[in-house]
Design a binder for these strands. Structure first.
Lengths: 196, 196
DNA sequence: TAATGCAGCTAACAAGTGTTAGTGTATTTT
DNA sequence: AAAATACACTAACACTTGTTAGCTGCATTA
């Protein structure tokens, strides 16, 4: 009888969630099975249910952990009194480091949220929309203050967010520059593309 | 007994493929079932197999149709004698209009290729890598010729490609600018971000 | 020591999956 | 008109899926 290994800092539940994130990232939510997850964790599939309620619970834990972090950061940056372009840069750096360091969860939240079940699905979508609107509002203000070139703000948001999620490719590539360099390059191109 | 409706320009097979692209886009390859596809097409699931060999065949037809178009365009642009920055702009415009007009197939090829089965999977991945390397080489040359700011070329490619695939969000959004405006905005930001 | 609860196990379920076999009917070709 | 082909159907298969029930052993507490 093998028990789930726990670092003293993490519960068995958390170990399961972390491994689920990796598995969902690699195979996609639908293609990943509980039996596979169990094997990774080192236990029989049925045993997982001593710690979690369902497969879909795993997904929504992962998605909302990320979503909440995003919202919290948006709250913090929004109230700052710095220039718009600086807010954008700060937001971007947060998103980039998130994608570099918490790759699995962010990736899953980004690509697999479609498989959330109600009411989580609606909730998640609305959070996502809100985040983008607030992001666009910051850009809009920057345009008004002539810090930023005259562009369609929602389009800019779309570009920025998806460019960041492209860090997935960086993870996958064999020869890669280090994380900090990646960040600086991305900032150069993206912020450079916005500035007037 | 309902037959699959065909415009005179399309075979029943093509109708199935087109509907599969939409379905795979909406639900993901794994979550989409042949019975669902059959219902959309207006027929029983088993009947589909008079026209196609398997579910996975549908996926690789879709993926390689897109991949081939990409490669062909790369061939054409590569041999042109224009400046690098113009080649990049041309390539971007091609990618953007593709994403606007052949949304379903491009989206599926972009997000669901993981579920390809061998040997198609390896083949696709290698095509994808090649495309990016050739794209990066164009950028590299532009940097050497001082048309483009000094950045990491693979990172730039990553940003450009994923920014384009972000057009998915534009499709999903309710209030959206038209396709041509979208294209111009994206070019402004992305090409602007590269220029020295 | 006895009792409690955590956390694993096996076995089984109901539902859904892609796919094949075999059959009949409509359409096209001869 | 007859023959051949294309294309739909029903029924069933083997398999995988998430999940539950019920049981056993270990560790901690009373």
């Amino acid at each position: 009888m093998g028990r789930i290994k726990t670092d003293n800092n993490h519960t068995r539940r958390e170990v399961i969630i972390a491994n689920a994130a990796v598995l969902f990232k690699e195979k996609g939510f639908k293609a990943a099975s509980m039996r596979e997850l169990a094997e990774v964790v080192g236990v029989e599939a049925a045993s997982l249910y001593n710690h979690i309620h369902s497969k879909s619970e795993l997904l929504h834990i992962i998605c909302f952990e990320v979503a909440n972090r995003y919202m919290q950061t948006m709250d913090e940056i929004e109230v700052e009194t710095t220039a718009s372009i600086q807010k954008i840069e700060k937001l971007l750096r947060f998103l980039i480091t998130g994608m570099v360091l918490q790759y699995d969860e962010v990736y899953v939240s980004d690509r697999e949220w479609k498989h959330l079940s109600e009411p989580y699905l609606s909730n998640f979508q609305s959070q996502r929309r809100t985040f983008r609107k607030r992001f666009a509002a910051i850009i809009e203000l920057g345009i008004k203050k002539k810090e930023i070139k005259k562009i369609d703000a929602p389009t800019a948001v779309l570009i920025l967010l998806h460019a960041v999620s492209g860090i997935e490719s960086w993870h996958r590539s064999k020869v890669k520059i280090n994380g900090k360099e990646l960040e600086e390059n991305m900032i150069a191109i993206l912020v450079g593309g916005l500035k007037k």
